[in-house]
Design a protein around this nucleic acid. Structure first.
Lengths: 227, 227
DNA sequence: CGGAAACTTGATCGAATTCAAATAAGGTGG
DNA sequence: CCACCTTATTTGAATTCGATCAAGTTTCCG
């Protein structure tokens, strides 16, 4: 049965691919490190994150997932994941059977292309993260994050004007940006004071997009194909 | 005409796929930012790197490429690359026509699987980099780099005992690890003094692998499918 | 209402950067 | 083969960005 909307990104034809839909609360594991994902998943609603746990208890968030995102292209291949995927909010996602989807991919070039595109987008985001973590200051990284989420959410029609749902805790921002919560708090306070952004009730408002871009480092690179 | 060896990673059948081979010197661009790659390339000999240039002149190296590596899975898709690919040493690589390779992929599941696997390996390496840059100290990152290169080169039969060709300049290590040359020099000096590694004439010897792993952080995560 | 997360704020510390020079290693034309 | 020039590497001193330590305060839920 075809479910309308963003879940259908992979089901380009007449929607005959079998999908299972699931809903879960926040802080739940969608996929677990060391286990192969039992299917290929698309986030339909809510935010999730790919998380690596270090032996000393610290964490690194590899990426945030929002509606329309494929939960790691690597799940197309039946391999152990090296990270957990966990929900940050209430999440609804759908699961495709791996073999069925693979067959669909091989039979239908547009589906193949679509999946390839999602994979490219995912890799581009990882590359963005590497550049941010490797060469940008804390403020630049956080400004980048805000802008990146704004653009991704806008592309999916999930931003109004310059504001959008922003359920991230500062701890999660810290884990994604390679910082401490304390420092994230300081940077966000500074952004508020400088009237760059404002966060009220888990909703982020971009007050001065131009200046925010400047702070983010306004680099020309990494502006390639996104989804 | 089939060329033996590592170039053939994608050409699993009887080697009828057309390949063009090219040789270039060090510090040459194999692919250029903003331009779609004109084909799908495999490194046959030498080292290369994917490099992002920031507007202020600083650089971030996204990954190092060694023989057997695909030059970015994203080149399967005709999109603008957001980074340069450049040779670090003399490099020989081969180029497949994108349409021909795509057709081969769609027709031959083993080839499809092979390409998928290379893509997964690439993504895993990017994720490794994110964790290193986000959560590890300078020494841990450099130790990781040495171990990772050792393992990758070993998998391709390019390491003897615990030593291998290591053509990287400290500047390049710095650009990959998000550090300055000055600091890379200090860390490597310390490693030498502690008899962890030694670098002589662009060849790296791992003196104390166990201790090197300890320094690298000996984490259990991120030990997934590599190629 | 009460307890636990989440967020702030201040003081101090430290890893890595920056600035500055000196030394070593390569590569080139004569 | 050597003098010369450029690119790498090393080392030291001073600085800084973000971490760590330590309380508070606020917000969120059950």
């Amino acid at each position: 049965m075809r479910v309308a909307g963003i879940c259908g990104v992979l089901d380009l034809e007449d929607g005959h691919l079998r999908q299972t839909h699931r809903s879960i609360g926040p802080r739940r594991k969608i996929d677990r490190v060391g286990e192969p994902s039992e299917g290929v998943k698309i986030i339909c609603e809510g935010w999730a994150a790919c998380v690596v746990h270090l032996p000393d208890g610290r964490r690194q968030i590899l990426s945030f997932l929002i509606p329309g995102d494929l939960v790691s292209t690597t799940t197309l291949f039946r391999a152990r994941q090296h990270f957990d995927v966990q929900s940050l909010t209430n999440v609804r996602y759908c699961v495709y059977s791996r073999p069925e989807l693979l067959q669909e991919i091989l039979e239908k070039p547009p589906v193949f292309e679509r999946v390839l595109k999602l994979g490219v987008a995912e890799k581009n985001r990882a590359d963005d993260a590497i550049v941010s973590l490797g060469r940008r200051s804390a403020s630049a990284r956080i400004a980048q994050l805000v802008i990146a989420m704004f653009e991704r959410l806008t592309a999916r029609g999930l931003a109004l004007e310059q504001s959008f749902e922003f359920p991230l805790r500062q701890q999660q921002i810290a884990d994604a940006m390679g910082l401490t919560t304390v420092h994230v708090s300081r940077v966000i306070s500074a952004f508020r004071k400088e009237r760059l952004i404002d966060i009220v009730e888990r909703r982020l408002h971009i007050v001065d997009l131009k200046e925010l871009r400047r702070v983010a480092g306004e680099r020309s690179s990494l502006r390639g194909a996104r989804t």
